[in-house]
């Protein structure tokens, strides 16, 4: 809930215009992750972060992984970070996660 609020705030700040499709989706109450090209972050415990729908990896270090998405950069910080899996649609980051940051 917090997250979607954050994103909504981001949206209103960015002043992005919702497309027709997105407006229809919201009218029909279709879950938000189905529509649009927005990234979805799923964090399980402190050891796994799954990010879907991203553009690419910008940076990969043991303590910081930066992912480029259509909404900005997501920074995952921690220690002993590894990329468990990476495909064109999703990336799973493993290790000891301490921060998930959204950077503009």
């Amino acid at each position: 809930m917090k997250r979607s609020n954050k994103q909504a705030k981001q949206k209103s700040e960015k002043k992005s215009v919702l497309s027709m499709g997105e407006r229809l989706a919201r009218l029909f109450e279709i879950p938000s992750d189905v529509i649009g090209s927005r990234p979805k972050v799923t964090a399980v415990g402190r050891g796994e972060v799954l990010i879907e729908n991203f553009k690419g990896i910008m940076d990969f270090k043991e303590d910081c992984v930066r992912i480029n998405t259509s909404n900005g950069v997501i920074k995952v910080m921690g220690s002993k970070l590894t990329i468990k899996e990476i495909t064109s649609e999703e990336i799973i980051i493993g290790g000891k996660v301490s921060n998930i940051d959204y950077d503009a």
Partner: peptide, 14 residues
Amino acid sequence: INICAKRQILLWNI
């Protein structure tokens, strides 16, 4: 890594 991912070359345990 990005290029591999785009080309559907599966990498894991990086």
